[in-house]
């Protein structure tokens, strides 16, 4: 952009927007260390809410569930999404139908996918629990991994695969020795992001978790804490969850050589 925008105005806009984006989160962070736990009055620094967080059985239980869901669904999504991305890239003909199917999980409103899966599972009389959440999370996670890997594949020269085959390598060896090393940063970055999405995902998990508290996840726990009685623990929990996401995103960004996710 060569247009000489008035610099002071631009800086003012940036300051205002970043204040808007970061002030609310920062307040939560600050409050998580507030001794009294009240949002209105600062009564001294303390990490006691973090301790009480880890002593809370409901929360640790939900956290464990979340971890199980996120890890398994991410691994499945990484495999399926990467293979899909490679397949789509090799197939030069761009099918509109195929593109729509791959893109759909990212744009269908969560609530629609959530009730669709709920109807589907209950119609088949599947008992819902962590496994149904995992299956559902794979749907959008694989689409996400696929899009990150495809971005990486843009400009990838498939003739090196042909070269490897020409040099006598069987297709699986070619995949392992040539394709995977090139794609690894994108796969890892995509997986980290998928993991973050899964950890944070609320609506689909909420609808596909089934009855009872057995398979409650962290976002579901947070939702009920916000709705039915805020305790100061939630500030600490928020701070932890946010820090986790930020670390994941920064890591993904670094691994994928500065390529920003979601672009």
């Amino acid at each position: 952009m060569g247009n000489r925008a008035p610099l002071p105005l631009m800086l003012m806009i940036l300051a205002a927007v970043f204040a808007f984006l970061y002030l609310p989160i920062s307040v939560l962070f600050a409050l998580s260390f507030n001794e009294g736990g009240m949002p209105t009055a600062w009564s001294g620094f303390s990490v006691k809410w973090y301790y009480s967080l880890f002593a809370n059985k409901d929360i640790t239980h939900a956290a464990l569930n979340t971890l199980i869901v996120a890890v398994i669904s991410t691994i499945l999504a990484a495999i399926l999404g990467t293979l899909l991305a490679i397949g789509v890239d090799i197939r030069r003909r761009k099918g509109r139908f195929l593109e729509t199917i791959i893109f759909a999980p990212m744009i269908i409103p969560d609530i629609v996918l959530a009730i669709a899966l709920l109807s589907f599972f209950s119609l088949l009389d599947v008992t819902m629990g962590l496994h149904t959440i995992i299956v559902s999370h794979v749907v959008f996670n694989l689409a996400f991994v696929c899009s990150v890997v495809r971005a990486r594949l843009k400009g990838f020269d498939w003739s090196i695969v042909e070269a490897s085959t020409d040099l006598g390598a069987p297709i699986l060896v070619t995949l392992r020795r040539v394709v995977i090393p090139v794609l690894m940063p994108a796969v890892v970055a995509g997986s980290l992001l998928a993991f973050t999405l899964s950890v944070d995902e609320f609506i689909i998990a909420f609808f596909t978790a089934g009855a009872g508290r057995a398979s409650i996840t962290l976002p579901m726990q947070i939702f009920s804490m916000i709705r039915f009685g805020v305790t100061p623990e939630i500030n600490a929990l928020s701070a932890i969850v946010m820090t986790l996401s930020v670390v994941m995103l920064a890591l993904a960004q670094r691994i994928n050589r500065g390529r920003l996710p979601g672009q």
Binding site: P24, T40, D200
Partner: peptide, 26 residues
Amino acid sequence: LAILPFWSNYLVRTYAWIVLLNREGL
């Protein structure tokens, strides 16, 4: 930095506004 908040938990980001807008809020 501009997209970073997008990747933090949606519920938490919404909850932050409850803290700000509350009758006893900031």
